[in-house]
Design a protein around this nucleic acid. Sequence first.
DNA 1: GTAATATATTTAACATGTTAATGGAAAGAG
DNA 2: CTCTTTCCATTAACATGTTAAATATATTAC
Lengths: 149, 149
Amino acid sequence: MTNPHAPETNRSLPIALLRAREKVMGPIRAMLADVGVTEQQWRVLRVLDERGPLDPTEIADRSCLLLPSLTRILQTLEGKALVSRAAHPTDRRKQVVTITEDGQTLIADNLKESQRLNAWLRDSFGSEKLDALLDLLNELDQLDRPDGR
Amino acid sequence: MTNPHAPETNRSLPIALLRAREKVMGPIRAMLADVGVTEQQWRVLRVLDERGPLDPTEIADRSCLLLPSLTRILQTLEGKALVSRAAHPTDRRKQVVTITEDGQTLIADNLKESQRLNAWLRDSFGSEKLDALLDLLNELDQLDRPDGR
DNA sequence: GTAATATATTTAACATGTTAATGGAAAGAG
DNA sequence: CTCTTTCCATTAACATGTTAAATATATTAC
């Protein structure tokens, strides 16, 4: 059974986005499960690794997480000693989150496999189609919603 | 701030799918919140309304939900008297879930607004681009994953 | 017909999504 | 300077996502 889905739901954009995301994330989740981090924890670690120490609000924006979720994720990551937190030097409302050496090691150990999965996607789906898809998704993201939020 | 996202994350397919989904679902969620049902509960009700009584496994497949989630959702919907459940006539492992009149009324009362939001999307994004996007997403969904699952 | 296997659904446990409310700290208005 | 407002982060409460285990029933193999 290659495609068990009814034709009508194939034309529902929310469902199509859901299925596509599951297709892409499945293998990545499997890889991360072996290391003991979730997809969201991985996103946070990568942001911190790429951009250096950040405050939670900026982490949330860059990793597409809501702050309440991020709060819990940072607590988990701190418990695993993959990140550390310090008070902001001037603004005492903020804090500064930094990836630890253990965190950087975890990223380094799995980046190659992650890139291999990306390469698989680009190869099997086609480079032109992948770029076209990304362009369309980014265009869609820039629409103004009817309720203006 | 129209587009606060760093350029590199715009080329990450999982993130792009996440953002696009949020863009499309935001207004729908707002509409459903007024009625007191979640996005997932709405999907279940629509499937039952369109296809008639079904067993949980088929509902899960058609509404893109995992069975443990669906179990809880059906309990909630049954508590709200929007669906009813009965034993399967021949196979006692299965059950048959049916949408109630209240459930059908809820669908009818909100279908027009839902269609209005779909029309907004098609108008503002463009009919050709929307179809192209759906085609690409469906193609992506038919790839075989490298881990074969 | 019984044992082994497979299927349908539920439960459990933990993580995240989502909205609202809270508490503490900075910024602005007067 | 004080009052109000805004901002940052957390907590709370409830719903769902995800994987594994449990339960009950059906099917298959022998």
